[in-house]
Structures are given as structure tokens and as C-alpha cells.
Simulated assay, not measured.
Amino acid sequence: MKLTVIGQWGGYPKAGEASTGYLLQHDGFKLLIDCGSGVLSHLQHHVEATELDAVLLSHYHPDHVADLGVLQHALLIQYFLGKNKGTLPVYAHREDPRGYDTITYKDLMEAHEYKEDTSLSIGPFTVTFVKAKHPVPCYGMRIEADGKSLFYTADSAFKESFVPFGKDADVLLCECNFYGEMDASNAGHMTSLDAGNLAQKTNAGKLILTHLPHFGELGQLVTEAKTIYSGEVLLAKKDMEVDI
């Protein structure tokens, strides 16, 4: 599997960049995970919108879905230009009916529901879900292919249930919206120490910090996570590519 960071900012994108979005590729299959503000613009440095095979959404906050409507328009315009290859499946939960109902669009995009207790086959990927601790319904996900695994926490405070769910994942893509000793739990987010703790408890092969804050010195997040986690810690950056 190859993971490409399209956007890594929490809340809103930094100038010239994007909020949450990741491209996961394996055996020629292209899966977009979340589709926040600015994601479609930067995605096109890697693949065209019509080349996507599926989209997977964690929840409906704008920094994770703001570009979904823009993606719909891209598919529509490319359809009129004769370049759209068909209906794009988008996998999402239905616990926010209004958000879920915005997904299906003409014959170009179709919503498919997932639930916490389901296991999905999306192309070469097997995807399982875990409920996050966030102000709105949100799900973390474990994505596996050919014996390799990615655990994406999405937006969440630390949860003990994440530990068995993410055990021995090759890559932990972990939200990190707060620094060290700050109180992030009431906001439904994690600190750098939470991320390091989760990586250590799950025995993750590698920790990537993402959903980054717009304040402070970001390198401090890595330093703090390393006080708990003994493995490699990376700070998510636009266009970063990681082989899993």
C-alpha cells in the first residue's frame, strides 16, 4: 500500500494547503480517505478526480467533507467532456442523515453505508471500523491489504478500545490537534502524548501525526510523542508518501 498525504490540517487549511485528505493506493486501486477543504485541488497533483475508485469518509465535519460537493462537480464536468468512467462509490455512516443524504449525486456518486460492526471489501482493501470519541458521530478505521495494515484514528480523544483495534498496525495515522499537557479530551481530540501512548500500546510500526494545530511549533509534537513511543514518528506534510 502507498499512502499519500493530500491534506493534514485540522479545522481549516493553511494557505496553499488542505485540511484532511489521504490517498491510499494498492494494486492500481485508488481510495480517497476524507475529502476536506482544498483536497480536490491538491489531489490532482497525484491523480485526476475521475481516476478515483472509491471514497471513504470518517464523519461530516467540513474539514473532512468540504470538497465532496466540489468532487461531484468535477465528476459532472468530466462526464460532459466524456472522461468520467462511471459512478463513484462513497462509504460513510448514516448517523448524520443530512450529511449522508448529500453524498449520492445523479449517476455520478453513490452513498454506501458502513457500521461499526461491519467489515467492508473496497477493492483490494479490507476495512473495519471503531467508534471515535468526538462531538459528532465519527469512526476510526483499520485498512488492510496483503498482510499490511493502516490504522487511521480520524478525529477522536484517546480511547482504550483503540488499543486492541489498532494492535500491531504497520502505520498509525493519528490525529494530534493539541500539545503535550493540554486538555484535548473535551474537544474530542488527542495530544501528542496521547498519540505517543496509543502508538506504544498498539505496538505500531510507525506513527504519523496529522490533523495538525494552527498554533505552536509543530516539531514539538514529534518531540513529545517520542517521550512515550519508541518507534519512528513523522509529522504529516502535504504530498508526503509512505510505503506500507
Rank of each mutant, 00 (worst) to 15 (best):
M1Y: 09
L3C: 05
T4E: 03
I6M: 08
G7W: 07
G11M: 06
A18G: 02
S19F: 06
L23C: 08
L24Q: 10
H26L: 00
H26D: 10
D27C: 01
G28M: 06
F29Q: 10
K30C: 08
K30V: 02
I33A: 02
G36D: 07
G38Y: 11
L40Q: 13
L40N: 12
L40C: 15
L40H: 03
S41I: 04
H42T: 04
H42K: 15
Q44E: 15
V47Y: 11
A49W: 03
T50R: 11
L52M: 09
A54G: 06
A54L: 06
H59F: 07
P62D: 12
D63S: 15
H64D: 08
L68S: 05
L71G: 04
H73S: 13
L75P: 05
L76N: 06
I77R: 13
I77L: 13
Q78G: 00
F80N: 10
F80S: 11
L81H: 12
G82P: 04
K83A: 12
N84F: 01
G86E: 09
T87E: 14
L88P: 02
V90H: 09
H93C: 03
R94D: 15
P97H: 11
R98P: 00
G99S: 10
D101C: 07
D101M: 12
D101Q: 15
I103F: 10
D107P: 00
M109L: 14
M109R: 12
A111V: 07
A111M: 10
Y114Q: 04
D117S: 09
T118W: 08
V127R: 04
F129W: 09
F129V: 08
C138P: 00
C138Y: 02
G140M: 08
G140I: 05
M141A: 10
M141Y: 06
R142T: 02
R142H: 04
R142W: 03
I143F: 03
D146N: 14
D146F: 01
G147K: 06
K148W: 01
F151H: 07
F151A: 06
T153P: 09
D155W: 13
D155T: 14
A157K: 03
K159Q: 15
K159E: 14
E160P: 00
S161I: 07
F162L: 10
A169V: 14
A169H: 07
L172P: 02
L172C: 08
L172Q: 05
F178E: 05
G180K: 08
M182I: 01
M182K: 14
N186C: 01
G188Q: 13
H189Y: 08
M190L: 05
G196T: 01
G196A: 08
Q200K: 14
Q200F: 04
N203T: 02
A204L: 10
G205K: 07
K206C: 12
K206N: 02
K206I: 03
I208K: 01
P213L: 10
G219D: 13
G219E: 12
G219M: 05
Q220R: 15
Q220V: 14
L221D: 11
A225M: 06
K226D: 00
K226F: 00
K226V: 00
G231V: 11
V233A: 05
L234M: 14
L234Y: 06
L235P: 02
L235H: 03
A236R: 06
K238R: 14
M240N: 04
I244W: 15
